[in-house]
Simulated scan of single mutants.
Amino acid sequence: MKITKSVFLKGAINKEQWIDDEISEVLLLGRSNVGKSTFINYLCNNKQLARVSSSPGKTQMLNFFAINDNGFRFVDCPGYGFAKISKSIKKQFVKMMDTYLLERRNLKLAILLLDLRRTPNADDLLMFNFLRERNINILIVTTKLDKLKKNDISNQERIIKETLLIINHIDIIKTSSISKIGYDAVLEKITEYI
């Protein structure tokens, strides 16, 4: 699959604002500052699609993007784990995500983005286990591959697998927005689910 067209549709903070149809959705999740907007823009070959912010935690709603004339949609989730947002916004985030993850029939795949340089933290583990316990299809994508020395890559991948207690059927794809490594593999995997 190749993404030839990508368009922002709308932002939503509650179920009433979701798009009501049967189009498959791929949810993108990750810690604040993991490079989610950059990942979306490179995957879609559209540098203007998702806003890249200099201050993490700016996205505070679910953003819906039509891909290939509504062949499927990306749903960009607010980054989690950023300490500077208020408790009320954190509560709103948890409620919004619980509702989406538990009730959204359109959801076919959740892509959990992790910074390859970092050991998954408690928030990453919580999100991963939440997805796994609810039998949501998961693809783990690591970002910032280009920031690591070659010798450190396999060690970091091992640490991620050990931290998340990853079982064999969950894929990990390493990506770099600089060299565009891994993007074709991500698109191939998405095709299996939509």
Rank of each mutant, 00 (worst) to 15 (best):
M61N: 14
L62I: 08
N63V: 02
N63C: 06
N63E: 08
N63A: 05
N63M: 04
F65D: 02
A66W: 02
A66M: 02
I67W: 07
D69F: 04
D69H: 10
N70M: 12
N70K: 13
G71C: 14
G71V: 12
G71E: 15
F72H: 01
R73A: 03
R73V: 01
F74I: 01
F74M: 01
F74K: 00
V75Q: 00
V75T: 00
V75N: 00
D76S: 01
D76F: 00
D76T: 01
D76W: 00
C77W: 00
P78S: 07
P78Q: 05
G79C: 04
G79R: 00
G79P: 05
G79D: 05
Y80A: 09
G81M: 11
G81A: 11
G81F: 10
F82Q: 08
F82D: 07
F82V: 05
F82I: 06
A83W: 04
A83T: 11
K84F: 09
K84P: 05
K84A: 12
I85W: 07
I85R: 12
S86Y: 06
S86H: 07
S86N: 08
K87Y: 11
K87W: 05
K87E: 15
S88D: 15
I89N: 12
I89R: 11
I89V: 15
K90S: 12
K90P: 12
K91E: 15
Q92K: 14
F93C: 10
V94P: 00
V94G: 08
V94W: 07
K95D: 15
K95C: 10
K95T: 15
M96S: 06
M96N: 05
M96C: 06
M97I: 15
M97E: 09
D98R: 11
T99Q: 09
Y100W: 04
Y100D: 06
Y100S: 07
L101G: 02
L102V: 11
L102D: 13
L102T: 13
E103V: 04
E103I: 03
R104V: 03
R105T: 14
N106K: 13
N106Y: 03
L107G: 09
L107I: 12
L107H: 08
K108L: 06
K108M: 09
L109Q: 07
L109A: 07
A110T: 07
I111A: 02
I111N: 00
L112R: 00
L112D: 07
L112H: 08
D115Y: 03
D115P: 08
D115A: 04
D115W: 02
L116I: 13
L116A: 09
L116N: 06
L116Y: 03
R117Q: 13
R118I: 08
R118L: 14
R118W: 04
R118S: 14
R118H: 14
T119Q: 13
P120G: 09
P120N: 09
N121G: 10
N121L: 10
A122H: 12
